[in-house]
Amino acid sequence: MSSIIGLIFISLGLAFDFFGCLGLVRLPDVYNRLQAATKCVTIGTCSILFGTFLVVGFSAAGLKALLCIVFLVLTAPVAAHAIARGAHRAGVKLWKGSVVDKYAEDKEGEI
């Protein structure tokens, strides 16, 4: 039973991964792409790892999968935030349909 639930989790994670990669190609802007890619791919990979944990059970491999989930959830947002900040400071323009840029307003306040 738990292996069937694990396979369902793995399938959902694969769908999230694929749609995240599709958003990376389809969206118009660095920041939009970063949002689609980071959130979808992180949750998809965590779902695949959790499905593997459900199939394997409480063994060494399953606990390693849980550890990998914790590490991905801790580090992927940090890396995405660093890339977004670097892109903004390097002067990458927002897409023309974007309506607000709070980080630029904050930087004007600093200077």
Partner: peptide, 21 residues
């Protein structure tokens, strides 16, 4: 831009973690 490629590298690494698992 170079930032797009950095985002793509980020996505590729996370996807390769899934592929290895």
């Amino acid at each position: 831009t170079a930032s797009d490629r950095a985002v793509a590298v980020d996505t590729v690494t996370t996807t390769i973690v899934a592929l290895l698992v």
